[in-house]
Computed example of a mutant assay.
Amino acid sequence: MALTKIADVRILSDAEIEQNIQAVKRELFNLRLQQATGRLEKTHLFKHKRHYLGQLLTVERERQLNSASQPVEEE
């Protein structure tokens, strides 16, 4: 399974990014639970999920900074 590309994340809407962040955090929690109980077989999933979460958070922050740097038009 290959790691996701940042271009795949950039095409998502803000709402989709927010939903994916929550979903990946839940998945990471479940992976930690499985690891603690000795039921985790695919340990590489930690790397993939953390990588994807990092991409999501990066794009979210870039968009926040972009909207903050935009000048507000006054009428």
Score class of each variant (00 low, 15 high):
M1I: 04
M1D: 08
L3V: 07
I6D: 00
A7G: 14
A7E: 15
V9G: 03
R10N: 05
S13R: 01
S13F: 02
D14V: 00
A15K: 12
A15W: 13
E16V: 04
E16T: 01
Q19N: 11
Q19S: 11
Q19V: 13
Q19K: 10
A23I: 09
A23L: 06
V24W: 00
V24S: 01
R26G: 00
E27F: 11
E27Y: 05
L28V: 04
L28N: 03
F29M: 06
F29C: 00
Q35K: 04
A36Q: 07
A36G: 10
E41C: 01
E41K: 12
L45D: 00
F46V: 02
H48W: 13
H48M: 15
H48N: 15
R50E: 06
R50F: 02
R50Y: 06
H51Q: 02
L53E: 10
G54I: 08
Q55F: 03
L56F: 05
L56S: 04
L56R: 02
L57G: 02
V59W: 03
E60Q: 11
R63L: 09
N66W: 12
A68L: 03
A68E: 08
S69Q: 08
Q70F: 07
Q70R: 09
Q70K: 11
E73L: 13
E73G: 12
E74G: 14
E74F: 13
